[in-house]
């Protein structure tokens, strides 16, 4: 079951999880209709997922992802359309380049670049989105909790 509707990213009481918290930013065109909703969250085996729909993955700015990590999320997974499938032609390519840039920045400040990733997929179901988030959670598990959570 999914809690559809507006999810308040600043409300930490909605993040009661012992599992890595992964924010999934997904392109509206990469999802099946069942999965579409402006934002939803779900605790599943091994991961707490908060998903936010974007009009296109290219709408994602570098600062958005850094703000999400600064606010305490353990990882961010971007789900973008495959090459040549992007409705805006080069949108998902731009998103991919920004993700690479962010990973480089994270490495420079001593954060694991694995905390941010991108997958190029189409017509994902909610379960498939959660699986992508779970994979991202598994990738960051060795690096522990986001240092921004410590001492809160």
């Amino acid at each position: 079951m999914f809690a559809f509707g507006k999810a308040d990213m600043s409300d930490k009481s909605q993040w009661p999880s012992q599992n890595p918290e992964v924010v999934v930013l997904y392109c509206q065109h990469g999802l099946c209709d069942e999965a579409k909703g402006s934002a939803w969250y779900q605790e599943s085996k091994g991961v707490f997922v908060r998903a936010v729909m974007m009009p296109c993955s290219s709408k994602i700015e570098v600062s958005y992802i850094l703000n999400i990590l600064e606010s305490g999320a353990d990882a961010v997974e971007v789900v973008a359309c495959p090459e040549k499938s992007c409705k805006y032609l080069v949108g998902s390519l731009r998103a991919e380049k920004r993700i690479e840039y962010i990973r480089g920045l994270l490495e420079k400040i001593g954060y694991a670049p694995e905390r941010v990733g991108i997958n190029r997929k189409l017509s994902q179901s909610p379960e498939q989105l959660i699986n992508l988030a779970r994979a991202r959670a598994d990738a960051v598990r060795p690096f522990g909790v986001n240092p921004m959570k410590k001492g809160e």
Binding site: V62, L69, L105, I109, G110, Y111, P147, M148
Partner: peptide
């Protein structure tokens, strides 16, 4: 845009 990119980056680095 760069201010809003650098600020969270510095906060995260300093806290770490």
């Amino acid at each position: 845009k760069e201010v809003e990119t650098l600020a969270p980056l510095l906060r995260m680095a300093l806290k770490k």
